[in-house]
């Protein structure tokens, strides 16, 4: 089943970062420790989705019918937890980025970091605060 071509999407959180190198889009999910290499027209689709365009608008920007491929790729991105539905579009004023030729989108996955984190988890205490001995906590108050 493909992704909904008429919905708006955005990155699944601040842990999703990406960088466009022209010939390759690198996407990192820092929450899971998985890296993705986006090739073909995947880079343009990713950029378009993250610029406030729907999958259908992105598919229509290609010279040939790309709706099925875009929908399938969108489903992959959702399955990987990289995108979530967005409510309001934030359109890129420069228009849909990238070149309007279509090459089958590819997504290659690298999970070395995830494997290491599963072996040796790191607990980010975050908002919970740093755990202290009782007498230290009392002294700090």
């Amino acid at each position: 089943m493909g992704g909904d071509l008429d919905m708006l999407f955005g990155p699944a959180g601040p842990g999703i970062i990406s960088r466009d190198f022209g010939d390759e889009m690198v996407v990192a999910n820092l929450d899971t420790g998985i890296f993705y290499s986006l090739g073909g027209s995947a880079s343009r689709i990713w950029s378009g989705l993250n610029s406030g365009y729907t999958g259908r608008q992105i598919a229509a920007s290609f010279p040939q019918d790309a709706a099925a491929s875009v929908s399938e790729f969108l489903a992959q991105l959702l399955a990987e937890g990289l995108l979530v539905p967005a409510e309001a579009p934030v359109l890129n004023p420069r228009g849909l980025p990238g070149t309007p030729t279509f090459d089958a989108p590819t997504l290659e996955r690298f999970d070395d970091l995830q494997g290491l984190l599963l072996i040796d988890p790191i607990h980010d205490v975050g908002e919970a605060g740093w755990p202290l001995l009782p007498q230290t906590a009392i002294a700090a108050e």
């Binding site: 607990h123 919970a128 906590a137």
Partner: peptide, 22 residues
């Protein structure tokens, strides 16, 4: 990089106070 939050039952200080304690 957090896969899970720590689950400890000891007393904690709020994170905004951590800086001064550090």
């Amino acid at each position: 990089m957090a896969l899970a939050a720590a689950d400890r039952d000891s007393r904690r200080i709020a994170s905004e106070e951590d800086g001064s304690l550090v």
